[in-house]
Computed example of a mutant assay.
Amino acid sequence: MKKYCLAVDLVNDPVMIAEYEAFHQKIRPEIEKSIRDAGITNMEIFRLDNRLFMIMETEDDFDFEVKARMDAENPKVQEWEQLMWKYQEALPSAKKGEKWVLMKQIFGMNGY
């Protein structure tokens, strides 16, 4: 198992943040399937103000590039991503067009 942590911001608007959270109370089945099919075994998203933090646990052979290709070929995922981008805002350090940014681990009680 591998673990990845990513971050993105939300548009800083309480109504939009509430809408975003409502979409995530029960995600669409085809979106969950695409996540699992890519080798992600667990995913959690946390929020502080308008900052989101995602923890992904994956199979050992998980590959972000493979996941990106799978997503690009899936119209339902593209529809979902376009909808979510309405609520999301790139981090100041994000590259052009980048949403979720991979975070660097700096501490682990059991090493890293």
Rank of each mutant, 00 (worst) to 15 (best):
M1H: 12
M1R: 09
K3R: 13
K3Q: 10
K3A: 06
C5E: 04
L6F: 14
A7W: 02
A7I: 01
V8T: 14
V8M: 08
D9K: 14
D9L: 08
D9I: 02
V11K: 15
V11C: 02
V11L: 09
V11W: 05
N12M: 07
D13G: 03
D13A: 09
P14Q: 10
P14G: 00
V15S: 03
V15T: 10
M16P: 00
M16G: 06
A22E: 14
A22H: 15
F23E: 09
F23Y: 14
H24M: 01
Q25N: 08
Q25A: 07
Q25W: 00
K26C: 01
K26H: 07
P29F: 08
P29R: 02
E30C: 05
I31L: 14
K33A: 15
K33R: 15
K33T: 10
S34P: 00
S34Y: 02
S34K: 04
I35C: 00
R36G: 00
R36D: 10
R36F: 10
D37A: 15
D37P: 06
A38H: 01
A38S: 15
A38I: 05
A38M: 15
G39D: 11
G39C: 12
G39M: 09
T41F: 09
N42G: 10
E44T: 10
I45V: 15
I45R: 11
I45W: 06
I45H: 01
I45S: 02
F46N: 12
R47E: 06
R47C: 11
R47A: 10
R47N: 07
L48K: 15
R51M: 10
F53T: 08
M54A: 13
I55N: 04
M56H: 00
M56L: 12
E57Q: 14
E57P: 01
D60T: 06
D60A: 11
D61Q: 10
F62K: 02
F62N: 00
D63S: 13
F64L: 01
E65G: 08
V66M: 05
V66S: 07
V66R: 15
V66G: 01
A68C: 05
A68K: 15
R69E: 15
E73S: 13
E73G: 01
N74Q: 00
K76D: 15
V77I: 13
W80C: 00
Q82Y: 07
Q82D: 07
W85M: 07
W85I: 01
W85T: 10
K86I: 06
K86P: 03
Y87S: 03
Y87I: 08
Q88M: 14
Q88E: 15
A90C: 04
P92A: 11
P92W: 13
P92Y: 11
S93A: 03
S93M: 05
K95H: 09
K95I: 01
K96Y: 02
K96I: 08
G97H: 09
E98C: 04
W100M: 12
V101C: 13
M103T: 10
K104W: 08
M109P: 07
N110T: 06
N110K: 11
Y112P: 02
